[in-house]
Protein backbone atom coordinates (compact mmCIF):
# COMPACT_ATOMS: atom_id res chain seq x y z
CA UNK A 1 0.00 0.00 0.00
CA UNK A 2 3.03 2.24 -0.21
CA UNK A 3 2.04 2.75 -3.87
CA UNK A 4 -0.77 5.26 -3.68
CA UNK A 5 -2.05 5.18 -7.22
CA UNK A 6 -5.17 7.10 -6.30
CA UNK A 7 -5.23 9.38 -3.32
CA UNK A 8 -8.26 11.36 -2.26
CA UNK A 9 -6.98 14.03 0.11
CA UNK A 10 -9.39 15.77 2.42
CA UNK A 11 -12.16 16.42 -0.06
CA UNK A 12 -15.47 17.98 0.96
CA UNK A 13 -18.68 18.69 -0.86
CA UNK A 14 -21.02 21.42 0.32
CA UNK A 15 -24.14 22.82 -1.23
CA UNK A 16 -25.74 26.13 -0.36
CA UNK A 17 -28.90 25.34 1.58
CA UNK A 18 -31.96 27.39 2.46
CA UNK A 19 -31.44 30.69 4.29
CA UNK A 20 -27.71 31.03 3.66
CA UNK A 21 -26.89 27.78 5.45
CA UNK A 22 -24.66 25.24 3.75
CA UNK A 23 -25.36 21.55 3.59
CA UNK A 24 -22.27 19.44 3.95
CA UNK A 25 -22.62 16.10 2.21
CA UNK A 26 -19.23 14.96 3.46
CA UNK A 27 -16.02 16.62 4.53
CA UNK A 28 -12.41 15.77 5.23
CA UNK A 29 -12.60 12.52 3.28
CA UNK A 30 -9.35 10.68 2.76
CA UNK A 31 -8.86 7.44 0.95
CA UNK A 32 -6.27 5.78 -1.18
CA UNK A 33 -6.01 2.87 -3.58
CA UNK A 34 -3.09 0.96 -5.01
CA UNK A 35 -2.60 0.21 -8.69
CA UNK A 36 -4.60 -2.80 -9.86
CA UNK A 37 -6.82 -2.76 -6.80
CA UNK A 38 -10.57 -3.22 -6.95
CA UNK A 39 -12.42 -1.10 -4.41
CA UNK A 40 -16.11 -0.98 -3.62
CA UNK A 41 -17.89 1.75 -1.69
CA UNK A 42 -20.91 0.78 0.35
CA UNK A 43 -23.20 3.18 2.14
CA UNK A 44 -26.79 4.27 2.25
CA UNK A 45 -28.29 6.61 -0.31
CA UNK A 46 -27.39 10.22 0.35
CA UNK A 47 -23.97 9.55 1.86
CA UNK A 48 -22.28 11.08 -1.15
CA UNK A 49 -20.94 7.95 -2.84
CA UNK A 50 -21.92 9.13 -6.29
CA UNK A 51 -20.45 12.56 -5.57
CA UNK A 52 -17.12 10.94 -4.62
CA UNK A 53 -17.19 8.98 -7.88
CA UNK A 54 -18.07 12.07 -9.91
CA UNK A 55 -15.21 13.96 -8.29
CA UNK A 56 -12.85 11.09 -9.12
CA UNK A 57 -14.16 11.14 -12.69
CA UNK A 58 -13.73 14.91 -12.86
CA UNK A 59 -17.41 15.46 -13.61
CA UNK A 60 -17.79 17.30 -10.31
CA UNK A 61 -15.31 19.43 -8.39
CA UNK A 62 -14.80 19.10 -4.64
CA UNK A 63 -15.53 22.15 -2.47
CA UNK A 64 -12.25 21.47 -0.66
CA UNK A 65 -9.35 19.10 -0.99
CA UNK A 66 -7.75 17.40 -3.95
CA UNK A 67 -7.62 14.11 -5.79
CA UNK A 68 -4.27 12.78 -6.92
CA UNK A 69 -4.12 10.08 -9.57
CA UNK A 70 -0.77 8.61 -10.55
CA UNK A 71 1.14 11.44 -8.92
CA UNK A 72 -0.87 14.27 -10.47
CA UNK A 73 -3.72 16.32 -9.07
CA UNK A 74 -6.71 15.96 -11.35
CA UNK A 75 -8.60 18.84 -12.85
CA UNK A 76 -11.61 17.88 -14.89
CA UNK A 77 -12.31 14.71 -16.77
CA UNK A 78 -9.72 12.56 -18.43
CA UNK A 79 -9.51 9.68 -20.86
CA UNK A 80 -7.39 7.95 -18.19
CA UNK A 81 -10.46 7.51 -16.04
CA UNK A 82 -13.33 5.71 -17.77
CA UNK A 83 -16.81 5.81 -16.28
CA UNK A 84 -19.41 3.07 -16.51
CA UNK A 85 -22.73 4.76 -15.87
CA UNK A 86 -25.59 3.22 -13.93
CA UNK A 87 -27.98 3.98 -16.77
CA UNK A 88 -25.42 2.75 -19.36
CA UNK A 89 -25.69 6.18 -21.10
CA UNK A 90 -25.32 4.84 -24.63
CA UNK A 91 -25.99 7.25 -27.47
CA UNK A 92 -29.24 5.82 -28.88
CA UNK A 93 -28.68 7.14 -32.42
CA UNK A 94 -25.45 5.17 -32.75
CA UNK A 95 -25.03 1.43 -33.18
CA UNK A 96 -23.11 -0.75 -30.72
CA UNK A 97 -20.02 -0.37 -32.88
CA UNK A 98 -20.71 3.35 -33.29
CA UNK A 99 -20.88 3.87 -29.54
CA UNK A 100 -17.58 2.09 -28.88
CA UNK A 101 -15.95 3.69 -31.94
CA UNK A 102 -16.98 7.13 -30.67
CA UNK A 103 -14.90 6.55 -27.55
CA UNK A 104 -12.00 5.08 -29.53
CA UNK A 105 -11.88 7.97 -31.99
CA UNK A 106 -12.07 10.43 -29.08
CA UNK A 107 -8.93 8.95 -27.61
CA UNK A 108 -6.93 8.42 -30.81
CA UNK A 109 -8.00 11.30 -33.02
CA UNK A 110 -5.53 10.62 -35.81
CA UNK A 111 -6.64 7.04 -36.38
CA UNK A 112 -8.45 6.28 -39.63
CA UNK A 113 -11.87 4.62 -39.74
CA UNK A 114 -10.61 1.11 -40.32
CA UNK A 115 -8.23 1.26 -37.38
CA UNK A 116 -10.90 2.68 -35.08
CA UNK A 117 -13.35 -0.01 -36.17
CA UNK A 118 -10.87 -2.83 -35.66
CA UNK A 119 -9.97 -1.56 -32.19
CA UNK A 120 -13.64 -1.13 -31.22
CA UNK A 121 -14.46 -4.58 -32.56
CA UNK A 122 -11.81 -6.12 -30.32
CA UNK A 123 -13.56 -4.79 -27.22
CA UNK A 124 -17.01 -5.71 -28.46
CA UNK A 125 -15.70 -9.27 -28.84
CA UNK A 126 -14.18 -9.08 -25.37
CA UNK A 127 -17.57 -8.42 -23.72
CA UNK A 128 -19.21 -11.13 -25.84
CA UNK A 129 -21.28 -8.98 -28.16
CA UNK A 130 -19.89 -10.24 -31.46
CA UNK A 131 -22.69 -10.31 -34.00
CA UNK A 132 -24.59 -7.39 -32.44
CA UNK A 133 -22.26 -4.64 -33.66
CA UNK A 134 -24.82 -3.09 -35.95
CA UNK A 135 -27.74 -3.13 -33.55
CA UNK A 136 -28.96 0.05 -31.93
CA UNK A 137 -29.16 0.28 -28.14
CA UNK A 138 -32.97 0.12 -28.28
CA UNK A 139 -32.70 -3.38 -29.77
CA UNK A 140 -30.56 -4.65 -26.88
CA UNK A 141 -31.51 -6.05 -23.49
CA UNK A 142 -30.43 -4.23 -20.32
CA UNK A 143 -27.51 -6.60 -19.80
CA UNK A 144 -26.30 -6.20 -23.37
CA UNK A 145 -26.51 -2.40 -23.09
CA UNK A 146 -24.33 -2.50 -19.99
CA UNK A 147 -21.87 -4.76 -21.84
CA UNK A 148 -21.59 -2.05 -24.47
CA UNK A 149 -20.99 0.45 -21.65
CA UNK A 150 -18.20 -1.78 -20.33
CA UNK A 151 -16.71 -2.22 -23.82
CA UNK A 152 -16.80 1.54 -24.35
CA UNK A 153 -15.04 2.16 -21.03
CA UNK A 154 -12.39 -0.51 -21.65
CA UNK A 155 -11.78 0.46 -25.29
CA UNK A 156 -9.97 3.65 -24.31
CA UNK A 157 -7.55 1.55 -22.18
CA UNK A 158 -8.00 3.74 -19.11
CA UNK A 159 -5.77 3.77 -16.05
CA UNK A 160 -8.83 3.18 -13.93
CA UNK A 161 -12.50 2.37 -14.22
CA UNK A 162 -15.18 4.13 -12.23
CA UNK A 163 -18.49 2.33 -11.89
CA UNK A 164 -21.63 3.82 -10.39
CA UNK A 165 -23.87 0.89 -9.48
CA UNK A 166 -23.39 -0.53 -12.97
CA UNK A 167 -25.47 -3.65 -12.41
CA UNK A 168 -28.24 -2.37 -10.15
CA UNK A 169 -30.78 -2.13 -12.98
CA UNK A 170 -30.19 -5.72 -14.14
CA UNK A 171 -31.85 -8.99 -13.21
CA UNK A 172 -29.95 -11.30 -10.86
CA UNK A 173 -28.86 -13.76 -13.54
CA UNK A 174 -27.48 -11.12 -15.91
CA UNK A 175 -25.88 -9.31 -13.00
CA UNK A 176 -24.03 -12.48 -12.03
CA UNK A 177 -22.68 -13.04 -15.53
CA UNK A 178 -21.56 -9.44 -15.86
CA UNK A 179 -19.88 -9.53 -12.44
CA UNK A 180 -17.90 -12.55 -13.67
CA UNK A 181 -16.94 -10.68 -16.84
CA UNK A 182 -15.87 -7.55 -15.00
CA UNK A 183 -13.84 -9.56 -12.52
CA UNK A 184 -12.18 -11.56 -15.29
CA UNK A 185 -11.37 -8.46 -17.33
CA UNK A 186 -10.04 -6.52 -14.34
CA UNK A 187 -7.83 -9.43 -13.26
CA UNK A 188 -6.55 -10.01 -16.80
CA UNK A 189 -5.77 -6.41 -17.53
CA UNK A 190 -4.72 -5.38 -14.02
CA UNK A 191 -7.28 -2.62 -14.12
CA UNK A 192 -7.75 -0.38 -11.10
CA UNK A 193 -11.44 -0.12 -10.37
CA UNK A 194 -13.62 1.96 -8.07
CA UNK A 195 -17.21 0.82 -7.81
CA UNK A 196 -20.27 1.98 -5.95
CA UNK A 197 -22.71 -0.71 -4.99
CA UNK A 198 -25.62 -1.47 -2.71
CA UNK A 199 -25.13 -5.18 -3.08
CA UNK A 200 -23.03 -6.64 -0.27
CA UNK A 201 -22.39 -9.91 -2.12
CA UNK A 202 -21.28 -8.02 -5.19
CA UNK A 203 -18.76 -6.13 -3.09
CA UNK A 204 -17.50 -9.32 -1.44
CA UNK A 205 -17.11 -11.05 -4.80
CA UNK A 206 -15.44 -8.21 -6.66
CA UNK A 207 -13.59 -6.00 -4.22
CA UNK A 208 -10.15 -6.25 -2.69
CA UNK A 209 -11.07 -3.41 -0.38
CA UNK A 210 -14.48 -2.28 0.78
CA UNK A 211 -14.99 1.31 1.93
CA UNK A 212 -17.84 1.71 4.40
CA UNK A 213 -19.44 5.14 4.56
CA UNK A 214 -21.77 6.42 7.28
CA UNK A 215 -25.06 8.12 6.57
CA UNK A 216 -25.12 11.63 5.18
CA UNK A 217 -25.27 14.54 5.50
CA UNK A 218 -21.90 14.86 7.17
CA UNK A 219 -20.94 11.39 6.01
CA UNK A 220 -17.52 10.00 6.91
CA UNK A 221 -15.51 7.05 5.71
CA UNK A 222 -15.85 4.80 8.74
CA UNK A 223 -13.77 1.75 7.90
CA UNK A 224 -11.78 0.11 5.20
CA UNK A 225 -12.54 -3.61 5.16
CA UNK A 226 -9.94 -5.81 3.52
CA UNK A 227 -11.38 -8.77 1.71
CA UNK A 228 -9.91 -11.94 3.26
CA UNK A 229 -11.22 -14.21 0.49
CA UNK A 230 -8.67 -15.70 -1.91
CA UNK A 231 -8.06 -13.92 -5.21
CA UNK A 232 -9.20 -16.91 -7.25
CA UNK A 233 -12.63 -16.94 -5.61
CA UNK A 234 -15.62 -18.05 -7.63
CA UNK A 235 -19.06 -16.49 -7.45
CA UNK A 236 -20.86 -19.77 -6.84
CA UNK A 237 -18.80 -21.10 -3.92
CA UNK A 238 -18.16 -17.73 -2.29
CA UNK A 239 -20.42 -18.55 0.63
CA UNK A 240 -18.49 -21.73 1.45
CA UNK A 241 -15.40 -19.80 2.45
CA UNK A 242 -14.96 -19.88 6.25
CA UNK A 243 -14.59 -16.11 6.49
CA UNK A 244 -17.47 -15.27 4.16
CA UNK A 245 -20.17 -14.92 6.81
CA UNK A 246 -17.98 -13.01 9.22
CA UNK A 247 -17.24 -10.53 6.45
CA UNK A 248 -20.82 -10.34 5.28
CA UNK A 249 -22.19 -9.95 8.81
CA UNK A 250 -19.69 -7.21 9.53
CA UNK A 251 -20.82 -5.22 6.49
CA UNK A 252 -24.51 -5.84 7.12
CA UNK A 253 -24.19 -4.86 10.79
CA UNK A 254 -22.54 -1.69 9.66
CA UNK A 255 -25.30 -0.89 7.18
CA UNK A 256 -28.11 -1.76 9.57
CA UNK A 257 -26.94 -0.09 12.77
CA UNK A 258 -23.43 1.35 12.84
CA UNK A 259 -23.84 3.55 9.76
CA UNK A 260 -26.29 5.67 11.79
CA UNK A 261 -24.50 5.62 15.12
CA UNK A 262 -20.84 5.55 14.06
CA UNK A 263 -20.19 9.29 14.19
CA UNK A 264 -21.75 9.70 17.65
CA UNK A 265 -20.08 6.59 19.08
CA UNK A 266 -16.61 7.22 17.70
CA UNK A 267 -15.57 10.68 18.84
CA UNK A 268 -11.88 10.04 18.21
CA UNK A 269 -12.37 9.04 14.57
CA UNK A 270 -9.48 10.33 12.51
CA UNK A 271 -10.55 10.72 8.89
CA UNK A 272 -6.91 10.65 7.78
CA UNK A 273 -6.35 7.33 9.49
CA UNK A 274 -9.39 5.25 8.94
CA UNK A 275 -9.23 1.90 10.71
CA UNK A 276 -8.51 -1.06 8.46
CA UNK A 277 -10.61 -4.05 9.35
CA UNK A 278 -8.98 -7.42 8.73
CA UNK A 279 -11.43 -10.16 9.32
CA UNK A 280 -9.94 -13.34 10.70
CA UNK A 281 -6.36 -12.02 10.77
CA UNK A 282 -5.37 -11.01 14.30
CA UNK A 283 -2.22 -9.06 14.82
CA UNK A 284 -1.15 -8.75 11.20
CA UNK A 285 -0.14 -5.19 10.58
CA UNK A 286 -0.14 -3.50 7.24
CA UNK A 287 0.98 0.10 7.01
CA UNK A 288 -2.11 1.86 5.81
CA UNK A 289 -1.46 5.52 5.30
CA UNK A 290 2.19 5.30 6.08
CA UNK A 291 1.44 6.31 9.66
CA UNK A 292 0.51 4.56 12.82
CA UNK A 293 -2.10 1.99 12.28
CA UNK A 294 -5.23 1.36 14.24
CA UNK A 295 -6.70 -2.02 13.72
CA UNK A 296 -9.89 -3.77 14.43
CA UNK A 297 -9.85 -7.49 14.61
CA UNK A 298 -13.05 -9.36 13.94
CA UNK A 299 -12.63 -13.05 14.73
CA UNK A 300 -13.80 -15.40 12.04
CA UNK A 301 -15.56 -18.63 12.91
CA UNK A 302 -13.20 -21.32 14.09
CA UNK A 303 -12.43 -23.93 11.45
CA UNK A 304 -14.05 -26.59 13.57
CA UNK A 305 -17.41 -24.91 13.36
CA UNK A 306 -17.57 -24.62 9.62
CA UNK A 307 -16.21 -28.02 8.84
Amino acid sequence: MSDKFISIEGIAKRYPGAGGATTTIFEDLWLSMARGEFACVIGHSGCGKTTVLNILAGLDAPSEGAVIVDGQAISGTSLDRAVIFQSHALLPWRTVLGNVAYAVSSKWRSWDRAKVRAHAQKFIDLVGLSGSEHKRPSELSGGMKQRVGIARALSITPKMMLMDEPFSALDALTRGTLQDEVRRICLETGQTAFMITHDVDEAIYLADKIFLMTNGPGAVLAEVVENPLPRDRGRTDLHRHPLYYALRNHIIDFLVTRSKTFVAETPGHDPRNVPVVQIGKPGLSIAANGEEQRQTWIPGPSPGLTA
Partner: peptide, 25 residues
Amino acid sequence: KEWINVARTLEVGTIRRAFTVILPA
Protein backbone atom coordinates in the same frame (compact mmCIF):
# COMPACT_ATOMS: atom_id res chain seq x y z
CA LYS B 1 -26.97 15.04 -18.72
CA GLU B 2 -25.60 11.51 -19.01
CA TRP B 3 -24.91 11.92 -22.75
CA ILE B 4 -23.09 15.17 -22.04
CA ASN B 5 -21.17 13.38 -19.29
CA VAL B 6 -20.16 10.64 -21.72
CA ALA B 7 -18.69 13.30 -24.01
CA ARG B 8 -17.01 14.99 -21.05
CA THR B 9 -15.37 11.81 -19.78
CA LEU B 10 -14.11 11.17 -23.33
CA GLU B 11 -12.59 14.69 -23.39
CA VAL B 12 -14.61 15.60 -26.47
CA GLY B 13 -14.14 19.28 -27.37
CA THR B 14 -17.01 21.77 -27.42
CA ILE B 15 -17.41 21.89 -31.20
CA ARG B 16 -17.25 18.13 -31.64
CA ARG B 17 -19.61 17.68 -28.70
CA ALA B 18 -22.10 20.07 -30.30
CA PHE B 19 -22.12 18.08 -33.54
CA THR B 20 -21.80 14.53 -32.25
CA VAL B 21 -23.93 14.62 -29.11
CA ILE B 22 -26.09 17.72 -28.81
CA LEU B 23 -27.19 18.00 -32.44
CA PRO B 24 -28.29 14.36 -32.86
CA ALA B 25 -29.93 14.40 -29.43
